[in-house]
């Protein structure tokens, strides 16, 4: 249907994710927003979606969607798309979102656009803006297949603006075929995170390969504490096992947009830049004067992080004390 934009409503820790709400708000602005909400959800989930502009929710509370990954949800969504034919369906660029879009784009033979930063409806199709190769290009793409257009949307692309709507709920039958029960969730393990969280932090101090080891993240914590911020990391630092994945900023980690971002020993790989380049002010410290990170920095310091950061910490203590 022309102008109808669906959003796959994703839950994390029993809450509708922020990216979902950002997408619903954008859908409501660009057309008529509707959402698909599958699996057990908290009581206020429907109202939350309505608050950001959803006018209709396709809903099944069946536990199959929580107990088995990807296949049951893809089956149900494919059926709904074939019946109701929305113009566009939006998914968050998350673990679940990517899995569903992969399956649906193959099943419906319609393709998909990944890593969308913005989009508009145009001439019966969609025109999406994609920050390609991390940050160095800004391309636009469209989908030439018939039917519903599937987009994977980057977190923090849109403002989660409130526009309260009256909402209708359409109960949908749950997927039940045994063939869909192939990927079973045995257990969800929560890894406890220490210190302030990246989400919502006004200041982020982040470390990369140049930090050389786990123990050196301590000085970043000290710096972050002095500035009332949180500590992040690049994929290289996470892959090396120095810090947990929850701290990863970048394409496969978190997308952040703090007021101040201090990049320490980070060269500025495409993977990392795409997760932080819209920060308001960026300061970077790196020993390599040619590191790409400097092109994105408001203030760049070429030098040794192990000398500069301790000096900065001392200086901040001195100034804050005085």
């Amino acid at each position: 249907m022309a102008g109808v934009i669906w959003v796959y409503a994703e839950l994390n820790d029993d809450r509708i994710t922020t990216t979902t709400l950002e997408m619903v708000a954008k859908a409501a602005e660009a057309g008529k927003a509707e959402a698909v909400l599958l699996g057990p959800a908290p009581e206020d989930a429907v109202q939350t979606l309505a608050k950001y502009g959803a006018t209709k929710i396709y809903r099944s509370a069946d536990p199959i969607y929580r107990e088995y990954l990807t296949l049951p949800a893809a089956e149900t969504i494919a059926g709904l798309i074939n019946t109701f034919k929305p113009a566009v369906m939006l998914f968050a660029s998350s673990y679940t979102g990517r899995d569903l879009v992969a399956n649906l784009s193959a099943r419906l033979d319609c393709g998909a656009i990944s890593d969308v930063g913005d989009f508009k409806l145009k001439d019966g199709s969609v025109e999406a803006t994609i920050p390609a190769l991390g940050a160095s290009y800004q391309n636009t793409s469209t989908l030439v297949s018939q039917g519903t257009k599937l987009l994977l949307v980057r977190p923090k692309s849109f403002e989660p603006e409130i526009s309260e709507q009256a909402v209708a709920i359409e109960e949908v039958p749950a997927a039940s075929d045994d063939g869909l029960r192939k990927v079973r969730m045995k257990e969800r393990v929560t890894v406890k995170r220490e210190g302030p969280q990246l989400e919502g932090a006004k200041t982020i101090v982040s470390g990369g390969r140049g930090l050389k080891g786990e123990e050196n993240f301590a000085m970043l914590s000290d710096l972050a504490e002095l500035l009332g911020g949180a500590v992040g990391a690049t994929r290289a630092a996470v892959d090396a096992g120095w810090v947990p994945y929850a701290m990863q900023i970048g394409q496969t980690g978190k997308t952040v947009k703090p007021d101040l971002y201090i990049a320490c020993g980070i060269s500025g790989a495409v993977q990392h830049l795409s997760g932080m380049k819209t920060s308001k002010t960026i300061i970077s410290i790196n020993k390599d004067a040619d590191a790409p990170i400097f092109q994105y920095s408001d203030f760049g310091m070429v030098g040794d992080v192990f000398k500069i950061i301790p000096q900065l910490i001392e200086e901040l203590k001195k100034r804050q004390g005085g």
Partner: peptide, 28 residues
């Protein structure tokens, strides 16, 4: 291909900041 790239462009550059080399007072 279902996905067609329409335009290839460069994003608006951030306003160039300053880059300096540490000469002992970088932290300050």
């Amino acid at each position: 291909a279902r996905e067609k790239v329409l335009t290839v462009g460069r994003p608006a550059k951030r306003q160039a900041g300053k880059v300096v080399t540490d000469e002992g007072d970088g932290g300050k």
